[in-house]
């Protein structure tokens, strides 16, 4: 176990060290996928992975940086999908405008959640989000005149870029997905490396201390959840347009659980972790069809095992590379290796 994980860690370190080469190559490879692979099914799986990347990056803001967890993330996803899908199908608005409304819809959901939980400790948010998911689902199922109830929304328009209709067959959706994932990654990176991100991480480490240092914790919590909701809403709008049909059953509790599971598996607080986690966990039931029935049991087991043996996830935790010192400062003694492992364990 220990040997395996050290081999794995040095592999990750190697990739991180050469990321200036690895990253562009990886992006180019991803960009040419629809030109090489013509199978609709594979492209659809890739798009799903992209959607989950956005969703997990969104939950990562709450779980990874703020140290709380959401069990109803599908509700925010659903709000985005319904806001965007309904405007598109009923009023015929173009995708680019409904996408904005989808994002706003998710953000609205985040705002409600944020106000309900801003003064509470970590555990409450997960239960409130669970209840929120049930309420949103109930509204969608019962508000027949607007949402079509259990019948769902049909005929959601495809995006149209200067006369070129994006479809899954011509690869347009795939590239759109890629762009949205990159936007989500950039937003996450900007958030993390800003004053905002530092304040949010301070809340995670010690809320009381953060408050005493003058961090307005309640406001930061609400803002983080709103931002997270907006990202989930974006994923929802994309899904609605890709699938052209949405109903309440699409956004079940299983989706929320899958999102949470990927975040834990990939490593809370790690952006590459979300992408790798989504790729592995979304493709796993497609590859292992015989295990598909047990997939949710496997997810549950994964949550427990990760918490027990590797709470920092696949790619989470602190960097083990030595801290880069400014020029002219020499390191006293030998550079410590493995100094991060002890601290890495503490990162939840």
């Amino acid at each position: 176990m220990g040997k395996l994980s050290s081999v794995y860690d040095s592999f990750v370190d190697f990739i991180l060290k050469h990321k200036k080469i690895v990253l562009p190559v990886f992006l180019v490879l991803l960009a040419v996928v629809p030109l090489v692979i013509k199978s609709q099914y594979v492209i659809r799986v890739f798009c799903l992975i992209g959607i989950y990347c956005i969703l997990t990056l969104s939950l990562n803001l709450i779980a990874g940086y703020m140290g709380q967890s959401s069990m109803g993330h599908a509700a925010l996803y659903m709000m985005g999908a319904y806001f965007s899908g309904l405007l598109g199908a009923k009023l015929g608005w173009p995708f680019w405008i409904t996408l904005v409304f989808g994002i706003l819809g998710g953000a609205l959901g985040g705002l409600i959640l944020g106000f309900a939980t801003m003064k509470l400790s970590a555990g409450y948010l997960s239960v409130i989000t669970l209840a929120f998911g049930e309420v949103v689902e109930m509204v969608v199922l019962n508000w027949n005149s607007v949402t079509n109830g259990p019948l769902g929304v049909r005929g959601i328009p495809r995006p149209n870029l200067f006369g070129w209709e994006l479809t899954p067959t011509n690869g347009g959706f795939y590239w759109l997905m890629l762009v949205l994932v990159i936007v989500a990654v950039l937003v996450s990176m900007c958030v993390v490396n800003s004053k905002f991100g530092r304040a949010v991480r301070a809340i995670k480490e010690d809320e009381l201390a953060a408050k005493l240092m003058g961090v307005h914790t309640a406001a930061y919590k609400v803002q983080t959840i709103v931002l997270s909701g907006a990202m989930a809403g974006m994923a929802g709008a994309f899904y609605a347009s890709m699938n052209r049909y949405i109903d309440a059953a699409t956004f079940s509790f299983d989706i929320s659980m899958t999102i949470l599971c990927i975040v834990i598996f990939g490593g809370m607080g790690s952006i590459p972790g979300m992408i790798v986690g989504s790729a592995l966990l979304i493709s796993f039931p497609e590859v292992l069809r015989s295990l598909a029935d047990y997939r949710f049991v496997v997810y549950g087991l994964l949550l427990i095992l990760m918490m027990r043996f590797r709470p920092q996830g696949l790619l989470g935790g602190l960097s083990r590379r030595p801290y880069k010192l400014p020029a002219g400062v020499s390191r006293p003694g030998k550079p410590e290796d493995g100094g991060g492992t002890e601290e890495g364990k503490k990162v939840s």
Partner: peptide, 13 residues
């Protein structure tokens, strides 16, 4: 939070 997530996993299983 690790205990909370583990319990969610148990619930799901």
């Amino acid at each position: 939070i690790t205990a909370l997530i583990s319990v969610m996993g148990v619930s799901y299983i």
